[in-house]
Design a binder for these strands. Sequence first.
DNA 1: CCTCCTCCTGAATCCGGCA
DNA 2: TTGCCGGATTCAGGAGGAG
Lengths: 387, 387
Amino acid sequence: MSKKTNIKNTSRTIRPSKTGGAEDAYTELPLDQILQGNCIELMNRLPEKSVDVIFADPPYNMQLKGELHRPDNSHVDAVNDDWDKFDNFSSYDDFSKAWLTAARRVLKDNGTIWVIGSYHNIYRVGATLQDLGYWVLNDIVWRKTNPMPNFRGTRFTNAHETLLWCNKGENYNKYTFNYDAMKALNEDVQMRSDWTLPICSGKERLKVNGHKGHSTQKPEALLYRVLLASTNKGDVVLDPFFGSGTTGAVAKKMGRHFIGLEKEEKYIRLATDRITAIDELEAEALEITPAKRAQPRVPFGTLVERGMIAPGTLLYSPKSSNGKQHIAKVRADGTLISDSSKGSIHQVGAALQGAPSCNGWTYWHLQVKEQLVPIDMLRQQIRQELH
Amino acid sequence: MSKKTNIKNTSRTIRPSKTGGAEDAYTELPLDQILQGNCIELMNRLPEKSVDVIFADPPYNMQLKGELHRPDNSHVDAVNDDWDKFDNFSSYDDFSKAWLTAARRVLKDNGTIWVIGSYHNIYRVGATLQDLGYWVLNDIVWRKTNPMPNFRGTRFTNAHETLLWCNKGENYNKYTFNYDAMKALNEDVQMRSDWTLPICSGKERLKVNGHKGHSTQKPEALLYRVLLASTNKGDVVLDPFFGSGTTGAVAKKMGRHFIGLEKEEKYIRLATDRITAIDELEAEALEITPAKRAQPRVPFGTLVERGMIAPGTLLYSPKSSNGKQHIAKVRADGTLISDSSKGSIHQVGAALQGAPSCNGWTYWHLQVKEQLVPIDMLRQQIRQELH
DNA sequence: CCTCCTCCTGAATCCGGCA
DNA sequence: TTGCCGGATTCAGGAGGAG
């Protein structure tokens, strides 16, 4: 059982045919619509080899256990939706295999598929993609500028998600990749496999009664880059896990057609309202998040790690008016130790001077051939590499 | 068939025992050595649960690429393609399963394993890790500052590799993670899951007759961060695909023990020379920022006992946003009593705030000359005495 | 209108020692 | 093994109010 939801009056007429089985097959693509139901059944009703690109944001199977609080004791509103629960890896794999098989049938031979995930699920999804014959073109890392920290200090901040971009096989080489558009978007340097973008928050984040409209809404900037890279104007983009409809919103804005598949009524309502309010952009499109121009932050530890300053190296302060000079030793984790204090280059510099603060980059020097050179010189080198 | 290679004169004597099978078992760990042979066989000869960390840089499945094509390189239909791919990925999976199983036996229950790979193999490796019961702690993205560009403009620049960091399972929670050292290395901001480091080039890149000594030599900075994060001084690090010996070089430098497994004679020679030339850093330089949890516990009652806080003293919470401030009185046994609750400094603090927990040391303050001073100041005094 | 400050929040596999 | 309980733990950015 499934029904369709029209997004705009201009959407095409649907003619389900009764031939060939219990399910109604779409003889024509239901463009710019959200179809309600199980995405596998719905995909099987679409004509084969009919869509240009698939973007899929399947459940991540997060397997969260207890409650989590921030250090200020506030409660973390985690993803604990029923749709994210699976019994075990095996049942998750069955699910992945099923929807990716249905997706493969619908995808044009020269089409491509994007799947986004986290470490909880992306390794399984990636293996399943390969098992089904999909060919990985790139794995893309979405570096979040503002991820949630690790509140308990138990792991590295989980600061990225992964997208897999695949075509239907090694020998299908005519997929769309707008190389020059990507290069232009990246200030005339080849677009890399790591994309730095903020998470979806602020005004862009859809709310219902003051609460998140969807627990995992993706930022439009992410979809913008995906669609700009891998589709042309007028292409058809299928999203089998439509959710809050970011794919549809960006597709409409960019003059692409979308087909959204979604089980839950509440998300369909949310997405429908959202997309209805959107106007298609004129020819020239804008990147929502411009590249940051600021100088990249370089921790002092980076110099140690890279072997530019070995642990055990002595650093020297400038000689003060009374001829006194401070010395500190570099430790393995990029902190300093002096006679009387330990800590960052800034902390130790401040402590030794009895000052409230200190710029360690200019205060501390290396001895190079009987000359003192500020460690800031080394930071400049690294910043040049990071360009 | 395998043999060992001593790296330094001080290495311990090895006593292979003839008991229990055709293979010689090591009754003692062959520390700081490179063992020649098949890594699975070698791992099976090591004592179980004996190494603290495994770092593995397995073949990326590029070698198998030839097998992924038909011998005549003919175009393969998508559907028929499946078995072909499956068979070949399957053999890579068998290989992964075999060495990861052997690795699991050798790894201490509270040990962790790192595996590095690219999109060609990491999704398969990740799924295999999970299938074997390993629990992913983080997936780490190594962002290369200087990756090889995509010359043909057909894809995004492949600018990263992925590391998976796992422990032996969901319930093994005592793995080593030097959170504070990582934070210090990153200038007092939590270390994230994306690491920006250059590839191995220049002087660091080992050459033999003017050519690369090893085709996939990893940068020492990468191993430095891995080992600083997940090992302590004196720990044993096993690398089953030792190659050019970056793991051993960094381990030696950092005062960790290594065990290297490697099939090829030429790489063993390369790595041996390399590691021999390396000096271990001095002890003071290897010190890192200690975890607060590692500091001696001081019961609040000690302050009362020592007369630093008299029974009857009033303690004050910080003023909250609505101007409210909680007050509690110290009792003779080091518990607090307030209007509504009694108990430890933590329990009363939590109860008064209606919070799930509270660090009483930072929550409660003494009034000293019209200023509020956290009682943690007094704990610091005691800890210094204990020094 | 601008600045400053406080509050809130985000796909999270989030503690550990001891009785 | 379970349960108790001490006490350690966060970054970026947007919204909104105060001044």
